[in-house]
């Protein structure tokens, strides 16, 4: 599903250049649940951003669902993200001005769907995360766990092939964190590929395998 070969990424400021990822080789199979662990600043989120086509590698090759990612246009990369990837963020990143259902509809806005179809798919995704009764609420009216469940609904509403979760339980207490992990496991059991960045070994244990990073290098 995701293939990285000798992928490196560095960030430059005026004074220094920081090597965020150094020669990463990684294969994520379809239907796999992979955890990425490592200390802060080791390149976990950078790796996830590369997998999700939010960023491009300086060196190496990357392919997603068999499609080599090179120097595609912004439009083409956006289309790939829209069709194939769903993101879940530590900070939820819900749009505070929009209702729950409008937030969940966001990925569908960039597809050719009627408003009715969008609304039905969003309602279905919210039903799947147990929030059917909250569709008209604003994010600020929900608990942290509920907000993250909305974020999960938004990530799955477009039925992407891979879910990329960046510390999805990082801002939640353990009980809510477990609920989110249960959801991710369920989605994985249904055939979805999940890649999750986490600090928490307990969460990582629930993945099929764990990739460890240290100073931008893959250590295991």
């Amino acid at each position: 599903m995701i293939h990285l070969e000798n992928v490196s990424k560095s960030y430059r400021t005026e004074r220094i250049e920081t090597l965020a990822l150094d020669s990463i080789n990684l294969e994520v199979e379809t239907g796999e649940f992979v955890a990425i662990m490592g200390p802060s600043g080791c390149g976990k989120t950078t790796l996830l951003n590369l997998m999700g086509l939010l960023d491009t590698p300086d060196q190496g090759t990357l392919s997603l669902d068999g499609e080599a990612i090179g120097k595609q246009s912004d439009r083409s990369l956006s289309r790939l993200r829209n069709r194939k990837v769903g993101f879940i963020f530590q900070n939820f990143h819900l749009v505070g001005d929009l209702s729950v259902v409008d937030n969940v509809e966001i990925p569908l806005l960039y597809r050719t769907l009627s408003s009715r179809e969008r609304r039905e798919l969003a309602a279905e995704a919210l039903g799947r995360v147990g929030l059917s009764s909250r569709i008209s609420h604003l994010p600020a009216q929900l608990s942290g766990g509920q907000q993250q469940r909305v974020a999960v609904a938004r990530a799955i509403v477009g039925r992407p092939q891979v879910l990329l979760a960046d510390e999805p339980t990082g801002n939640l207490d353990s009980q809510m964190g477990d609920e989110i992990l249960d959801l991710l496991e369920e989605l994985n059991r249904d055939g979805g590929t999940v890649v999750m960045v986490t600090h928490d070994p307990r969460m990582a244990e629930r993945a099929h395998r764990t990739v460890r990073l240290f100073d931008g290098r893959q250590v295991q």
Partner: peptide, 16 residues
């Protein structure tokens, strides 16, 4: 900024 990032992540192009 957050909204822009989210929309980009979920498939919005610059044109969108």
């Amino acid at each position: 900024a957050s909204e822009i990032g989210v929309r980009r992540a979920f498939g919005a192009s610059c044109g969108h």
